[in-house]
C-alpha cells in the first residue's frame, strides 16, 4: 500500500520534530492508522495548564481522504462537541477542502490554533458559541473549570474510562457548584 510509506514518514516527522506543544506517539498494539497525541493547553489561553488527549485516525485511503481528529479529553469549546465523543470541526479536514498533500503537522497546528482562537461563527456547540460571543467572562470561567476537572494529569485515551469521567460533566453549564443539587 502506497500510503504506508507516507504515514511512516509523517510519523517520523511528527515524533522527531513535533509542532509546538504537541507530543505524538503510537499507542501500544496500534497499527500505523491510529495515533495518539497530547496537546498542551496554549499559554495565555483559558486552556493553559491542561493536557488534552487527541486521537488521530487515518483512513485506509489516507492521504486521499482526510484524517479524523477527536478530543479524548473533555473540553469546553465552541468548535468541539461537549461530550465524550470530542468531535472537532476543522475546515481543513472537510472533504471539499482536504488536499492529499496536507501534512498532519499542519493539521495538528490547526487544532492548536483553534484553542488559541475559537471560531464561534462555525460552531459545533451553538450555545457555547453564543456564550463565547456574548458573555466571554462566563465562557472563560466554565472553560477553566473544565480544565481543572478533566485536563489535569496524563490524558486517558481509553474511551470507556473517558465516558465515565465525562459523566459528572453532563450538566451543560458545567462547574456551577457541584454540591448544590439534591444531596
Amino acid at each position: 500500500m502506497a500510503s504506508q510509506k507516507r504515514i511512516a514518514k509523517e510519523l517520523t516527522e511528527c515524533t522527531s520534530s513535533p509542532p509546538t506543544g504537541v507530543t505524538v506517539f503510537l499507542p501500544k498494539d496500534s497499527d500505523l492508522h491510529r495515533w495518539h497525541a497530547i496537546l498542551d493547553g496554549p499559554e495565555n489561553t483559558v486552556y493553559q495548564g491542561g493536557k488534552f488527549g487527541l486521537v488521530i485516525s487515518l483512513p485506509t485511503d489516507y492521504p486521499f481522504k482526510a484524517p479524523t481528529i477527536t478530543f479524548a479529553t473533555r473540553i469546553y469549546h465552541p468548535n468541539i462537541t461537549n461530550d465524550s465523543l470530542g468531535n472537532i470541526c476543522l475546515g481543513l479536514l472537510k472533504p471539499e477542502n482536504w488536499k492529499p498533500s496536507t501534512r498532519l503537522l499542519s493539521v495538528l497546528e490547526a487544532v492548536r490554533a483553534l484553542l488559541v482562537e475559537p471560531l464561534p461563527d462555525d460552531p459545533l456547540e451553538a450555545r457555547i458559541a453564543d456564550e463565547y460571543r456574548s458573555d466571554r467572562k462566563e465562557f472563560e470561567k466554565t472553560a477553566r473549570n473544565y480544565v481543572q476537572r478533566y485536563a489535569k494529569g496524563p490524558p486517558k485515551f481509553d474511551s470507556s474510562e473517558n465516558s465515565s469521567t465525562a459523566h459528572e460533566g453532563d450538566d451543560k453549564k458545567g462547574g456551577s457548584g457541584s454540591g448544590t443539587g439534591g444531596s
Partner: peptide, 12 residues
C-alpha cells in the same frame, strides 16, 4: 519522468 523526483503524496 524527472530524475530525482519524490512524490510528496505517496513519498515514492
Amino acid at each position: 519522468v524527472i530524475p530525482g523526483f519524490v512524490c510528496d503524496i505517496c513519498c515514492e
